[in-house]
Design a protein around this nucleic acid. Structure first.
Lengths: 300, 300
DNA sequence: ATCCCTTTTACTCAGTTTGAGTATATGTTG
DNA sequence: CAACATATACTCAAACTGAGTAAAAGGGAT
């Protein structure tokens, strides 16, 4: 066995939801995700990430989950003998308490993926995208049918329903078709803001993972303040899923699962009838880590 | 940024199902999982793994999925300045065609996890395990309730149902309680066969992942021959899940999803009425990669 | 040839869950 | 105090799930 040395880099997708908008922490004016080297002193990968996130941002980091590890040659900046292994993590944080000056900035998910937000119906960006993808499919007669089917399923065309969990596949499809700037395309209006290297792909991975996870594990609460109303909770879920949910059914499912309990207080910030405040039942946290949550996934 | 150098190692959990028994490819007489270094020539992590699996075993490797990456300090053999990063993968292969002499050997999952096979009811091993775990919980008055709840949920005690997807949590619980040899325990009859370093933990991760995945993605077919009967398919799923499934419901779900089609032939190897042979509908493979499968999860 | 045994295949049925719609309660605002 | 906005509560049909039963089609023994 040869000694195969490599440099290890930790990349973080830190997400919060503020004002019903999912955001990600970025550096370089929103061009890149924060990252840092894995060092010998670190006890583990996760500990290493926690350490420098804390150093650099001071942000308390609750939930942290490994996303993916890659070391593709064509992704490394230079073609040297030494390779870089990138290990990405998804972290969930509370609504940020004013990041310090010069500190990393927060940007909305949907700046980078305008086509992913379906809370108010199909975004306009999808029209242009599907047109461009269809043209790409038609251009290759042999792979046409195959491509067309993928497009329909990814974008919810020709009878296929929109599936919010396909965020990564959609980005990869657009990449393959050369529609995004990372693949060498002209910066188009519909294609969203691009990022350094494959950071946007990592963000898409995080979105897909989180959208899947909120359906069967109570991770939303990592993004909520201690007390919240049911509407607030619903809007947070909707922001992540990029979908509008049916209100009565959302409520039914939440209290069926006995995940939360009333605090006894109410909030009149919502305009109409004051809403009861709830808190997450930490008492049964272990129970939840093992059992499952569900969410209604109706459209508008 | 300092240069943080590390050695990268790829670890493979290759699984096949033969004679209704899930098996894993091992080296060192079943003591370890096959692994190899990630080298500079490799195009990507996945490509690197494919390459040396092919070299060492000649086994054609279909489905391949990344499991987890870790670099815990206490897991490395020596405490040197250089760290090892281990990247593990789950691979699914067809029933093996007689591995060559001196080649890696196959061992049943349930040699390592005897408590995980519930196809014929609760395994005997669980009695001793739950007893030992309960004693462990009782030993610490402050954390008692918490521990007891975890035990009940993991093992399906006190009203909690058995959940086959908790394989990893169960192993970790037993590790924490010092019941497995890897944690320094005496080799006990119920604790299953142990493995080198944390390889058994990786195998548990693979089992958990696969048990979850077969429910919503048609990966079982990676383990099936070209033609198969519905019973064969069911037994394969049951082997992986470690559960007995309700036959009529299994069939109903399978053909509702139109994943397979009749070949027109029948097989009389089953003893009773000859069974129709089916094949996986490759034509709609992309479709399946994006949509979802479901399985009935009834007990016995 | 016929009866028995085994396994496949087909059908039924009640309880639960899900998607969707409607009605009522309780505040604030003009 | 009426109009409005939002929270909360209830209803209903369709779909799905878990579970059980019955018929069909072969092999083997007598």
């Amino acid at each position: 066995m040869k000694d195969a040395l490599a440099q290890a880099e930790l990349i973080a997708v830190l997400t919060a939801v503020t004002n019903d908008e999912p955001r990600v922490m970025t550096v370089s004016k929103g061009e890149a995700l924060p990252s840092g080297p894995f060092e010998v002193e670190h006890r583990s990968l996760q500990a290493g990430l926690r350490e420098w996130v804390n150093e650099q941002t001071g942000h308390p980091l609750g939930y942290l989950e490994q996303l993916y590890t890659f070391a593709d040659r064509d992704r490394s900046p230079k073609d040297k003998a030494q390779r870089t292994i990138s290990i990405s993590y998804l972290g969930l944080v509370r609504e940020q308490a004013a990041p310090g000056a010069g500190a990393p900035g927060w940007h909305g998910w949907y700046e980078y993926f305008p086509w992913e937000d379906h809370r108010e119906g199909r975004p306009d960006a999808l029209a242009g995208i599907s047109e461009a993808l269809n043209a790409w499919a038609a251009a290759d007669p042999t792979r046409r049918d195959n491509r067309q089917k993928r497009i329909d399923l990814c974008l919810g065309l020709n009878g296929a329903p929109w599936n919010e969990e396909l965020a990564l596949q959609r980005y990869e499809l657009m990449f393959e078709a050369g529609l995004v700037a990372e693949a060498g395309a002209e910066p188009g209006a519909d294609a969203g803001r691009s990022m350094f290297a494959d950071h946007r792909r990592i963000l898409a991975t995080a979105i897909t993972r989180l959208r899947a996870k909120i359906k069967y594990r109570p991770v939303v609460f990592e993004l909520m303040p201690a007390n919240f109303t049911l509407s607030h909770l619903q809007h947070t879920v909707e922001a992540l899923a990029g979908l509008a949910l049916h209100k009565p059914n959302f409520r039914r499912l939440i209290d069926q699962q006995e995940l939360i309990e009333e605090t006894g207080e109410v909030s009149s910030e919502t305009g109409g009838r004051p809403a009861k405040l709830y808190r997450y039942r930490r008492a049964i946290l272990e129970e939840h880590a093992l059992s499952s949550t569900r969410l209604p996934l109706s459209r508008n």
